[in-house]
């Protein structure tokens, strides 16, 4: 079905087809939580972690759905899995690392509605990745999301010190910066 090595899957999801900047997944947190470097990197960590767990679960459920021949339940079961994975991860972190739990705060539950997670589950199924490939894909996508949101947060922190014209403040300038970042990332297409 496909002939990618694990390395190329990782590079592909990290840089070439970056989830945020070229597949437009997870734009809401990218615009919403990118005003501070500190919170942005935590958000990235949380997303990567949930991606890893839900990718694992989604793979298992997909095998099950194919076995009982009910592919029309795919979307509904994925969204339920992601919601429960987020809940599970939250409980787990709260129990074993209260410090990390406090650091992530409100971001954990919000990840449920992050389309990057559902997108990842749908893409790995569509591309027919096996278990190991799915996990590598999840880590690459998570790292790519973190990279994009941290870059954006760094730029926005600098931006606060400059005088930006009133009418372009807010979402408008963030989108235009994202456009420039996205053009830069197009350069990575040469790696393919």
């Amino acid at each position: 079905m496909h002939t990618e090595t694990l390395g190329s899957i990782f590079l592909n999801s990290l840089l070439i087809n970056n989830f945020v900047l070229s597949a437009f997944l997870g734009i809401c947190p990218f615009l919403g939580v990118s005003n501070k470097l500190d919170t942005a990197s935590r958000m990235g960590m949380a997303v990567t972690f949930v991606m890893f767990v839900s990718s694992m679960c989604a793979y298992g459920v997909n095998v099950l759905l194919l076995w009982i021949e009910a592919p029309y339940l795919q979307l509904i079961s994925y969204i339920v899995i992601i919601a429960s994975a987020v809940q599970l991860v939250e409980m787990f972190i709260k129990k074993f690392s209260p410090a990390l739990f406090r650091a992530l705060g409100i971001f954990l539950p919000l990840i449920t509605t992050n389309c990057a997670i559902l997108g990842l589950a749908l893409f790995q199924t569509a591309k027919g990745y096996n278990f190991v490939e799915s996990l590598v894909y999840a880590i690459g996508a998570g790292a790519g999301f973190t990279l994009a949101i941290v870059l954006m947060a760094g730029i926005r922190e600098e931006l606060e010190l400059t005088s930006v014209p009133g009418i372009i403040k807010g979402t408008a300038i963030v989108l235009i910066i994202a456009g420039i970042l996205s053009m830069t990332f197009m350069g990575f297409a040469g790696l393919a």
Partner: peptide, 22 residues
Amino acid sequence: VLPGGAFFVLGFLLLGINAMNT
């Protein structure tokens, strides 16, 4: 039609709406 253009067009549309409201 590339990803960058999507960000630019939406960014400039929001800019225009801001300018109009101001």
